[in-house]
Design a protein around this nucleic acid. Sequence first.
RNA 1: GGGGCCGUAGGGUAGCUUGGACCAUCCUAGCUGCUUGGGGUGCAGUUGACCUGAGUUCAAAUCUCAGCGGCCCCA
Length: 485
Amino acid sequence: MPEEESRKVVLDRSDFGTWYNDVIELANLSDKRYPIKGMNVWTPYGWKIMRLIDSAIRRECDATGHGEVNFPLLIPKTEFQKEADHIKGFDSEVYWVTHGGLDELDVPLLLRPTSETAMYPMFSLWVRSHNDLPLKTYQIVNTFRYETKMTRSFIRVREIHFFEAHTCHADAEDAERQIREDCAIMDRVARDLCLPYLLVKRPDWDKFAGAVYTIGVDTVMPSMRTLQLGSIHQYHENFSRPYDIKYEGADGEHHHVHQTTYGMSERLVGAIVGVHGDDKGIILPPKVAPIQFVIIPILAKGKTEMVLEEARRLKEEVSAMGYRVHLDERDQRPGSKHYDWEIKGVPIRIELGPRDIEAGTLVFARRDLSTKRTVSRSDLRSETRRAMDDIEVELSGRARSILDNGVRFAGSPEEYRKLSHEGWDGVVKANWCGEMGCAESMERALDRTFLGYPLSDSGEVETSPGGCYECGSPTDKIVLLSRSY
RNA sequence: GGGGCCGUAGGGUAGCUUGGACCAUCCUAGCUGCUUGGGGUGCAGUUGACCUGAGUUCAAAUCUCAGCGGCCCCA
């Protein structure tokens, strides 16, 4: 029988939706059997990945002078209602707390869908003078949104593990500087996750409730649908006016602060799973892998203790180099363990058996390439570091080609039809004249929605002369349309 | 926003139309023991379920209603 047919677990990435659900269950990242829709249980392995991502975010925020805070989960209805657009945007998806014990509350409380309305009444107390600015804060907490659509682990959930940075600035210019800093933070975090992304300025009708503008950070999944990894919002004085956040300037006058926010969530885990995985399971970027090296001892009769002792020594050595390493001492066949750790995406498997001990070697198996290499025990230090670096390069490269292939320019319906005939089904880049009628026609014809205006690396809105996809009028506006999660 | 399908052990299935006992069944799951060990070792034994609530009935996995949950399609 061919080896493939004896495989016990069958994962098929060509059916991405099913693959995604299966692999999360098999790798044991999250248990979706909790009896509330969209509220899944983080298992130790999945939660560790999330925490490693959080650590990377914390590191960046702390390094850029943000202070970590922690605000209450409950928000009084009266505070929530102060910014009109904001309520409109979230009204249909908040959870309400209406009772305390048996008594109905005078003022209903809501579970934060995001924390603007919890934080800003306090900011108004905290900010008095220009010396208090900029005020840069962030928190990593859970938020709640009553999703009515179908939920999907990490991607669309009702209880969201959420990072949110909130800042206050003296003027628009300093707030703009903050937006650029946010983009730089995004870039460093994404690098650790080996995830390329697009910066996309959202169209006005799709910006965050209460924002002046919103920059979406989107990546492209293998299904060619986009997944939003983060958002960066410029508020100007939209919130500081209703929440009365003012400072006394050097000029002796009172001014409203300018504000920005920046958010990311557990979707980062969804992106890692989706973008890097293969038919054998998930593949974790080394920086966020709970286990970076797994050691599989090959136990032969009579040599069990000898091999185990050597394996434990090896574990100590790798651990002393600062890596997260696990020695799998379970009483199972080696092959069975190999499959296990492959599903869970451990970057490097080290096999150690009697033959290796005799020869002073180790076997390094790479999860991303499915290759094995015999390395000299004396080169352990350089080999481990090299393995980690090489895997990052490989994963980033692959993810980059998914993204590059997933975004194509179509100047006209004819050009789109050609792409479509080739079986391509990704993010369409096109010229648009700016007329709403054309936007609606384009969305209908392409069966995609406006993602927004792509930004260059320097943060400028991309332009390119051409004719509107729909009406042909000359324009230099460029837009992206996608199916998104 | 609208429509449809579905919920039986860790996972997968049968049974439901036409209510009934006796044994549900399979597995890549769990547990015991022995065996084995460089890609899912083999054998034996064993564990474990009818989503929740109300109703109809002598009797409910099966029929009715509601809730919760899951999936799909259309806008």
